[in-house]
Simulated scan of single mutants.
Amino acid sequence: MTDPADPARGALLVTQPVPDLQLQLLIQLLDREPRSGLPLTLAVPSGVLHGEVIGHESWKAEWARSLRQVEGEGANLLAEFPETVDQGIKEAQADEDTVSLPRWIHLRDATLVCGGVAPLRLPLWRGRLSDVSGWALGRPE
């Protein structure tokens, strides 16, 4: 039997989890209307997460607003960080003709429920779409 990691066999195949296409398209739709959001429940590796899914631009604006309430010069620099990252990505993709689907999901007023501990409430949450193993519209009752 041969070892699949044996360099003599050629290049290794690197695989990554694939995000749910319908969830990506839903987020892309929310990105078009910055003031929109939908209640959503997600299955993530750490438990069940529910909140209002929002677009990237809404998340950036709310994150910057929350950091401006924190004292200190460092908070002001961090408030501009998401926009700086977006500019870098746009510049790097300027020569590419491809349209990319969202790879991140953002929730507002999120609650993380893990077995045996009190729910964790988060004003804003950002996670990789490829880490979401299931989802449903709405929040638990």
Rank of each mutant, 00 (worst) to 15 (best):
M1R: 07
D3F: 00
A5H: 14
G10Q: 13
A11L: 09
L13C: 14
L13H: 15
L13G: 13
V14N: 10
V14A: 14
V18I: 12
V18G: 11
V18W: 07
P19V: 06
Q28R: 11
L30F: 09
D31L: 05
R32W: 12
E33K: 06
S36P: 01
S36D: 02
S36L: 03
L38P: 07
L38T: 14
T41Q: 05
T41D: 07
A43G: 02
V48I: 00
L49A: 08
H50N: 14
I54N: 07
H56D: 05
H56K: 03
H56G: 02
E57G: 00
E57Q: 11
W59A: 00
W63R: 13
A64F: 10
R65W: 03
S66F: 00
S66L: 05
L67R: 03
G72E: 02
L78I: 01
A79I: 06
P82H: 09
E83W: 08
Q87E: 13
G88N: 04
E91S: 10
A92Q: 08
Q93P: 04
A94F: 02
D95T: 14
V99Q: 12
P102N: 04
P102M: 02
W104P: 08
W104L: 15
H106S: 10
T111E: 12
V113C: 04
C114A: 13
G115M: 05
G115F: 02
V117P: 09
L122A: 06
P123T: 03
L124Q: 04
W125F: 12
R126S: 11
G127H: 04
G127Y: 04
L129S: 14
S130Q: 08
D131V: 07
V132Q: 09
E141R: 10
